[in-house]
Simulated scan of single mutants.
Amino acid sequence: MIRVRAGLGALGVLVGGYGAWVLLTRQDQDQLIGAATWLAAGVVLHDFVLAPLVLLLLALGARVLPRQVRAPAVVGLVVLGTATLLAVPVLGRFGERPDNATLLDRDYTAGWLVVAGLTLVGVTVGTWISRSRHRTTDDLDGGERGPGAGGR
């Protein structure tokens, strides 16, 4: 197992090194500055905007949502949040050019709405499964909520 991890780590370092070499040898200075700015902005936005916002939403959700809904809601938040972040360039139609109709040639908003709907369905199904499991466990406990009943 350790050899597999070491091999995968070495492969990752090699691929990353090759990517860095290609970036540094085949791009002009403006492109390198743009890439560095993009990477730095991504770190800043993640650490100072996205992560605190997600933590705030999770804290609010922990107070408001019933216990059985929390895990599916977190999964839904992670899935939809990630999909939304990845879709920002196409949803904003960044890079659209009037002389090339093949760029951004779809209704990406409709696609994002489908992903959001499927995520909501998944969260609903996950909540239903979680609630049914908790009901079964409660039935086995006899519905008691004393000190020895598991403290749920």
Rank of each mutant, 00 (worst) to 15 (best):
M1W: 08
R3I: 01
R3Q: 09
V4P: 00
V4T: 14
V4D: 06
V4L: 12
R5K: 10
R5A: 12
R5G: 01
R5I: 13
A6T: 02
G7I: 08
L8R: 14
G9R: 10
G9D: 07
G9A: 14
A10R: 04
G12K: 09
V15P: 01
G16A: 15
G17N: 12
A20Q: 10
W21C: 09
V22G: 00
L23A: 14
L23P: 00
T25D: 11
R26H: 14
Q27H: 14
Q27M: 09
D30Q: 10
Q31F: 07
I33H: 02
G34K: 03
A35L: 11
A35M: 10
T37L: 13
A41I: 03
V44Y: 13
L45T: 11
L45A: 15
F48L: 15
A51I: 11
L57W: 05
L58E: 13
L58A: 14
A59V: 06
L60K: 04
G61S: 03
G61R: 00
R63W: 13
V64L: 12
P66N: 05
R67M: 06
R70E: 05
A71E: 08
P72K: 01
V75N: 00
V78K: 04
V79I: 14
L80T: 01
T82H: 15
T82G: 14
L85K: 04
V88N: 02
R93T: 05
R93C: 03
F94T: 07
F94E: 04
G95W: 05
R97N: 03
P98V: 05
P98Y: 02
P98M: 01
D99H: 03
N100A: 08
N100Y: 07
N100G: 00
A101L: 14
L103R: 11
L103S: 03
L104P: 04
L104S: 03
D105C: 01
R106A: 11
Y108S: 03
Y108R: 02
A110Y: 07
L113Q: 10
V114E: 06
V115L: 14
A116T: 07
L118M: 15
T119W: 05
T124S: 11
V125D: 02
W128Q: 06
I129N: 04
R133K: 13
T137F: 04
D138N: 10
D139F: 09
D141R: 15
D141V: 10
D141W: 08
G148A: 10
